[in-house]
Nucleic acid binder design. Structure first.
Lengths: 230, 230
DNA sequence: TAACATTTGACACCGAGTGTCATCATGCTA
DNA sequence: TAGCATGATGACACTCGGTGTCAAATGTTA
């Protein structure tokens, strides 16, 4: 969505796929792209699915085949972001303290945010203008929370405490991002994020002498050994 | 909402009101009551507004006059809860440290939760079964965050730090409540809440030597002097 | 009781979301 | 290369949430 390709807006790797699948990717990409442009211009609620579909030259029904809900066309990035996070957290260095792993991963994520500043800022502008999107957006934080809780629990400390720390981290980072967005991306996201994180460092479960328990990670839906980039 | 009256489910003070307004209160109460019963039985999404309206002997259109959105009939409590919180935070003792005020208020709120255990547990069960409600529910946390941020900022410390602390508190408490709900209300909500809070005590802004600044409270929508029970 | 104000219900309409089915393009195979 | 199986598409119809409009019913006040 940054580089302008000669023919069309090309998605990711369209190679090694049949024409059928390439078309599918392109259709989805076009829909998302068109939709975001419309949302940015007039707000999420003011844009109808019919319009998006028409602008992308597909039928309304087809739109819903690609995006089960209108909101999904907006939150396309999220799934990828989660995957990125999990990849970053898949600590190569198993000796590293869990909190350090989390810190490193989140700061990298901050860098990625800054890299796509433009996109993310407009995204948040749309978000801010739409309560329903805002609400859905908060749900992603829960997903992040689950992931972080698992990682923080790796140390073997009290998993409940790990989850508390994860919750605090997620909450605090949202505020930092919020501030970054409000400043138009001018504040130093990485620095402020790190500052906030270090405030929470003492919350991480102290080196665990409860190593035996690997159960009760709470609401997690993540397998302890999962998370490889693919 | 606590005492059971002989004739109907009576709302609050129905005295000193004309017949018109009494009917209005009763209609709203009936709708909410009927709706909650249906939601609890079959889930939020499976119950249609028509059903609720029919069960309450009003037209569909009338339902929407009382509750602009279907979701609103579910979140009736929330507004009251926020008011309670603000009342609790309206510290009588201005010498008390902001964090202590927050702690006191939140623990009182925990007690209230425990008092209405039954209601709240079923409420959360419905919530858990409905992504849209869950999403909306998270928005209330933001409101709480705003309120707490203001109070924590009273001490005169860095208001940004106050907001960070508020975010951490809200995030952490949601986890505690989540655990309480999952346990069927058997864990000690107050104790676990306090434990979690004390973990965050060091986050509260250190005694402020920046007393001059009263601006930049961030996303708050709360007037510093507001919050009296009414 | 008469005049006024407000609430209600009926109707019509829009947009999101879903099931169904005929049609058409793709990809594989003879 | 012809043909067939598979799967994507578009058209249609329908449900449900949500809203505007207006006439009828109900409450309030003089």
């Amino acid at each position: 969505m940054r580089s302008a390709d000669p023919p069309k807006a090309r998605a990711v790797a369209e190679v090694g796929l049949g024409l059928r699948d390439r078309k599918k990717l392109e259709a989805a990409a076009t829909l998302a792209q068109v939709a975001k442009r419309l949302f940015a211009a007039r707000g999420f609620a003011e844009v109808t699915v019919d319009e998006i579909a028409a602008a992308a030259n597909v039928s309304r029904r087809t739109f819903f085949r690609y995006f089960p809900q209108k909101e999904d066309v907006f939150f396309g990035r999220r799934a990828a972001q989660l995957a990125e996070l999990e990849a970053l957290l898949d600590a190569p260095d198993r000796e590293e303290a869990p909190f350090a792993t989390v810190r490193r991963a989140l700061l990298s994520l901050a860098d990625l945010h800054v890299e796509s500043r433009g996109e993310i800022l407009t995204e948040h502008r749309v978000l801010a203008g739409s309560p329903e999107l805002l609400a859905r957006d908060l749900e992603w934080d829960r997903r992040v929370l689950d992931i972080l809780a698992v990682v923080l629990g790796r140390g073997g400390g009290d998993p409940r405490r790990a989850r508390l720390a994860a919750a605090a981290i997620v909450g605090v980072l949202r505020v930092v991002i919020e501030r970054w967005v409000d400043s138009g991306g001018r504040t130093d996201l990485r620095a402020e994020g790190d500052e906030a994180l270090m405030l929470l460092a003492p919350m991480a479960p102290p080196r665990g002498r409860r190593g035996r328990r690997s159960f009760d990670v709470g609401h997690s839906g993540l397998k302890p050994g999962a998370a490889r980039p693919t």
